[in-house]
Write a protein that binds this DNA or RNA. Structure first.
Length: 491
RNA sequence: CGGGGUGUAGCGCAGUUGGUAGCGCGCUACGUUCGGGACGUAGAGGUCGCCCGUUCGAAUCGGGUCACCCCGACCA
């Protein structure tokens, strides 16, 4: 009997301890704050990766790979960037070990000290711009639109499974442009790509917007973000796209000759999403029975479970099941036929629910007689009996329905969890009693934002794009305001 | 780095006033089962995180140390 699962009521660790680890997604590693992603969890990441990679290519990007190690001196070139990252870097100081002359084991060879320390990349702006310097001379060399799939390390004081691990997998796009306008366009395009991915693949509604100065990426002029709401009422920054201006070009002296023959600094963007998206996916949709995966990202969209007593029954079912698997395959759906003899049907049902498999077909003796299958859907946990004739098309339609249903469920939840408030008392009350997003007026100053954060732990998640303009008064200072911004307590 | 908590079988946990370790799940074998995580019988599995101390005797008491988790500061 599975341990009773708790979900949206508790804190995030409950989600992971009860749902994720049991669902074979990840477990703690031997290394501080790092994460082991087991095969099933990694299969989800691979799905995400392949969709995103396609989207990047469709928007004119190419993949490249840059070094893991960054010379320390690179970091001192962009002042605000180093301030943002210096406190959380892993530093390589030596390149050799030796047997301990004093005893057992190995020690760092003091003779093998590096002349210049190497930083394990926390993000790759510096090493990439150091490289771009050599790639760019003329406006004819622009734009450069590279993406890198890589791991990065940030030595956070406190880590959280999936949401903030010391090492994480991500993609980082780095582009170079001849004009500010073109770079801003790129920044916005990539934000749209992320929003599209979140909503149409992850089935997770997001608010697109720009960050306030306080929350901006270290070294950026503008940070765009997609913000999602988790079922426990906390917000999660799920992807960011930065307009870097000419900051990195100036820091790394990357200039080009424009078509008027004049020298100018290159304009830059960077954008990234990480394995944090897996955390978002889990916390946005899971229920007390385990994961709920959107069909478009489920490693196993359809599973077929045979129910039988005898070898003869199994053989008959297998013929039908294998035929179905082939039919699904021809329609682009990877169905799994689980004829594992060592597990019983009830066990399999529970297991695939835990793993979030969207559609489960069960075929038993009863179905053999009537030419049926039992079709169960994960999102609603409902079952019905369907004729085997045309079941392939039925399942295709069902998968589409599930994809849509998961999204609308999450959207409905977000709408119900978004509150407009006009006073600070109300603001605090909603935060404590209801959680979720809060739309409120803000006077636009960092001081107010910081004080609200200090008193309530809520931050401005973003200023939504195409935000409705409306006269009002800042809930904290009472000063005039032109628009409401999006507040929430966040991960 | 501050505050709190936990380290005992693969996992989750119990362990009384100190007396030499147990439960559930899982695992192995056999049988009956198989349409919602089956049941019976018989088994296997632990230097009680590590070190030092107190004691005739320590999972239990004292000191230290390490690791992990939670709450803060920091952050994708």
């Amino acid at each position: 009997m599975a341990k009773e699962l708790t979900s949206r009521s508790e804190n995030y660790s409950q989600w992971y301890n009860d749902l994720v680890i049991k669902a074979d997604m990840a477990e703690n590693s031997a290394v501080r704050g790092c994460m082991v992603i087991k095969p099933y969890g990694y299969a989800i990441w691979e799905k995400m990766q392949s969709v995103l990679d396609r989207m990047f290519k469709d928007t004119g990007h190419v993949n490249a790979y840059f070094p893991l190690f960054i010379p320390k001196s690179f970091f001192s070139k962009e002042a605000s960037h180093v301030e943002g990252f210096a406190k959380e870097c892993a530093v390589v100081t030596h390149y050799r070990l030796m047997t301990d002359p004093e005893g057992k084991g190995v020690v760092v060879d003091p003779e093998a000290r590096l002349e210049e320390e190497l930083i394990v990349r926390p993000t790759s702006e510096t090493i990439i711009w150091n490289t771009y310097k050599n790639w760019i001379q003329s406006y004819r060399d622009l734009p450069i639109k590279c993406n890198q799939w890589a791991n990065v390390v940030r030595w956070e004081m406190r880590t959280r499974l999936f949401l903030r691990t010391a090492e994480f997998l991500w993609q980082e796009g780095h582009t170079a442009h001849e004009s500010a306008r073109e770079a801003i366009e790129e920044t916005e395009t990539m934000l749209k790509v992320y929003a599209d991915f979140a909503e149409n693949y992850m089935a997770m509604p997001v608010v697109q917007g720009v960050k306030t100065a306080n929350e901006r990426f270290a070294g950026a002029l503008e940070t765009y973000t997609i913000e999602a709401l988790m079922q426990d009422g906390k917000a999660l920054q799920s992807g960011t796209s930065h307009f870097l201006g000419q900051n990195f070009a100036k820091a790394f002296d990357v200039t080009f000759t424009n078509n008027e023959g004049k020298l100018d600094y290159v304009w830059a963007t960077s954008w990234g999403v990480s394995t944090r998206l897996m955390g978002a996916l889990i916390m946005a949709h899971s229920d007390d029975n385990g994961l709920v995966l959107p069909p478009k990202l489920a490693p196993i969209p359809v599973v077929i479970v045979p129910i039988y007593k005898t070898k003869e029954e199994l053989d008959k079912i297998s013929v039908i099941a294998k035929d179905l698997v082939a039919k699904f395959k021809s329609m682009g759906i990877e169905a799994k036929y689980d004829d594992n003899d060592k597990k019983k049907p009830g066990w399999k049902f529970a297991e695939y629910e835990l793993k979030g498999v969207p559609v489960r077909l069960a075929i038993g003796p009863r179905d053999l007689e009537n030419n049926n299958a039992e079709v169960a859907r994960r999102d609603t946990l409902t079952k019905e009996t369907v004729s085997l004739d045309g079941i392939d098309q039925y399942v295709v339609n069902l998968l589409n329905d599930i994809q849509k249903n998961i999204f609308s469920k999450a959207l409905k939840f977000r709408e119900e969890s978004t509150t407009r408030v006009d006073s600070f008392d109300e603001f605090k009350k909603v935060l404590d009693e209801k959680g979720g997003f809060i739309l409120a007026h803000w006077d636009g100053t960092s001081e107010t934002e910081e004080q609200i954060k200090a008193e309530t732990k809520a931050t401005i998640r973003c200023i939504p794009l195409n935000n409705e303009q409306e006269d009002g008064k800042c809930i904290f200072s009472g000063k005039p305001s032109k628009q409401r911004v999006l507040f929430a307590r966040a991960y």
